[in-house]
């Protein structure tokens, strides 16, 4: 497997757009050719070579190409855009739109990742060891086509609107999330292992959400169905018990929302509907 290492030459001040950083663009190219790939520094067109010190050698195919980014790329947007295979490892924090329209391969971020991770993602895997911003897997404004396939795992906390307009795939947040996880989701699965700030599944039409931690309340347009012992995600069983709700009924939705019984004593009043 070929390995290419990118190191920022300076600390970036203005936003950088570097959608060319993908195994697909690097595979089979010389260092010189990779250095010549286009990027944007604010309003100036530039090249990867101007921005990064580039060493190593890529593989012949995307699958055989691993890109390692050393240093802080918090201002760099669109890394891994449309990648189909191979691997990107970011040994720091990364900017917005990581893995936009990604189709395959794997991206790992050792630090934090900014908003719109995996926007309109169609496959592959993104793993963030730190925290994530808002709108994981969401499309751009006004669009209804969110993440379709693939897996996103956040080890830290995530912001608002995790899995907005999601159409498939899996998102796992090991920490806490902000408001509106699974808003407008149609299909797919979201697992939140920590607490959620609220409004889970707002306007969802389908799909599954599970929260293992605390939720302040359930939206009034969800109806309580039952208590279930466990929740299944990617073949793995996660122990409950869970309060299970269906919604969003305002949207004639049939999404399933699972909320830990143990961590949500304030929802006990729903149990009266069990009789």
């Amino acid at each position: 497997m070929g390995e290419i290492i990118l190191k920022p030459k300076v600390a970036f001040k203005v936003p950088i757009i570097a959608e060319t950083i993908t195994p697909d663009n690097f595979a089979g190219k010389s260092i010189k050719e990779i250095e010549d790939l286009e990027a944007w520094e604010g309003n100036r067109k530039t090249t990867l070579g101007e921005l990064f010190e580039i060493t190593g050698a890529p593989g012949e195919t995307p699958k055989d190409t691993k890109i390692i980014i050393e240093g802080d790329v918090k201002k760099v947007k669109k890394i891994g855009c449309k990648m189909t295979d191979g691997e990107i490892i970011i040994k720091g924090s990364v900017g917005m739109y990581l893995g936009e329209e990604m189709k395959g391969g794997k991206i790992t971020v050792e630090g934090d990742a900014d908003s719109w991770i995996g926007t309109r993602m169609k496959g592959g895997q993104i793993e963030v060891k730190g925290n994530a911003g808002d709108y994981i897997g969401a499309p751009y404004r006004g669009d209804t086509k969110g993440m379709k396939k693939g897996t996103i795992i956040i080890h830290g906390n995530a912001g608002n609107e995790v899995g907005c307009w999601m159409r498939g795939g899996t998102i796992i947040v090991k920490g806490n999330t902000g408001l509106f996880p699974g808003i407008h989701m149609k299909k797919g699965t979201i697992l939140i292992e920590g607490d959620c700030a609220g409004r889970c599944g707002a306007m969802m039409k389908g799909g599954k959400i599970a929260v293992l931690g605390y939720v302040p309340s359930i939206l009034p347009s969800f109806t309580f169905e039952e208590i279930k012992k466990s929740f299944k995600i990617k073949g793995e069983k996660i122990k409950g018990p869970f309060y299970v709700f269906t919604g969003d009924l305002n949207e004639n939705g049939a999404g399933r929302l699972h909320v830990s019984v143990e961590k949500n004593k304030h929802l006990q009043f729903y149990e009266k509907f069990l009789e």
Binding site: R199, A202, S217, L219, P220, S221, L249, N250
Partner: peptide, 8 residues
């Protein structure tokens, strides 16, 4: 929450 409840 209130808007959602009103709609429902």
């Amino acid at each position: 929450e209130l808007l959602t409840a009103l709609r429902w």
